[in-house]
Computed example of a mutant assay.
Amino acid sequence: MRKIKKIHKSEYRPIADLVTYSPMPTRSLQMIDPFLFLNHHGFQTYPEHNQGLPFGPHPHRGMETVTFILEGDIMHKDSSGHESVIGPGGVQYMTAGKGLIHAEVSSSEFKKKGGDLEILQLWLNLPAAKKMMDPNYIGLQKDEIPTFELSEGKIQVQQLFGEWNGVKGAFEGTFPITMSTIYLEEGSQFTKEIPEDENIFFYLVRGEVKINQEEIQFRHLVEFENEGSTLSVEALEKSILILGHAKPFNEPVVAQGPFVMNSQQEIYEAYEDYQQGKFGSWNG
């Protein structure tokens, strides 16, 4: 069994009227290399004629985002020319690379009609050799993402990166990574073998599960030791889990605002390049 190091409860960090919880970074957990940051927005219900998500145009460099839309929608637009509206069950994958400007807001329809919203955004680091690569974005709706079943159909797995159970993920990662969104019915269970030299990202979005005999509540992140290879998960109630794993980069990380680089000098350069318009122009 993979040894559990610590279980981290998400901290409540509202953004305007947006309910937000974050398990990482906190005082107790800075990162799980190469997983940097997670914001869990919602669950909440927006009224008609709302302002929607508050994430207007802002820059990024040196990292990637994976955005999970469980309820509601998100409209993405960036300075590289990408634009999309992704609905429930969909996922967005953006590589900031050498720099872009993007906005993540609610669609005009959601702002007009309101509705349920639950969205998570995970930041992935980029290795030093790829921090200045060209930006990229892919947004996929629920029916465009490969899925498979476990536990006699009681578990639905969306395979996002890497391969599991013979199913290849929807996205080609910038570095070797495996990641899934897992929907579990009460009483369902699965096991997974993960190499000891890979770090695990394990966040319970909804429900309650038992992982390697430890009970975990929703909005908790499990930090593992690099000892043992087997994960054994049992759903104590209907649950949603994000599970990822990858080898750590073991490189210096300097994060400041929207930029994640390897040195303070590179952070200064990022701000300078952004101010000089090198991240592309923003229209709208």
Rank of each mutant, 00 (worst) to 15 (best):
G139N: 13
Q121A: 13
W123Q: 09
G114L: 04
G166Q: 12
K130T: 00
L140N: 06
S151I: 07
A103C: 03
S106C: 09
E152H: 09
K112P: 00
K142T: 00
S106Q: 08
W123P: 05
F148R: 07
P127T: 00
A103S: 15
S108W: 02
L117R: 02
K130L: 15
E118F: 01
P135F: 07
E144S: 08
F110W: 06
L120Q: 05
G114H: 07
G162Q: 08
G166S: 12
D143M: 01
E118Y: 01
W164Y: 13
P127R: 13
K98S: 11
K112G: 00
E163M: 13
K112V: 02
L140T: 01
E149T: 14
Q158P: 06
H102G: 03
E163Q: 15
L122A: 10
S151W: 05
I138H: 10
L150T: 11
G114I: 05
L150Q: 14
M133F: 10
K130C: 01
F110E: 00
E152I: 00
P135N: 12
A129D: 12
L117E: 08
E144G: 04
V105T: 06
N165E: 11
E118M: 14
Q158A: 13
L160Y: 11
E149V: 01
L140Q: 05
L150V: 11
G162E: 11
S106E: 10
L124E: 03
L120D: 03
Q141A: 11
K113W: 07
D143T: 08
S151M: 05
V157G: 04
I119Y: 03
A129P: 03
Q141L: 04
E109W: 02
E118N: 13
G139K: 07
K111M: 15
P135S: 14
L100C: 03
I155E: 01
G114N: 06
D143L: 04
F110S: 02
V105P: 00
D134Q: 12
L122C: 06
K130S: 11
F148T: 04
K131T: 02
Q159T: 10
V157C: 06
D116E: 15
I155T: 05
A96V: 01
K142A: 13
P135Y: 07
G97D: 04
Q156W: 00
E149H: 13
D143H: 10
Y137L: 11
K154W: 01
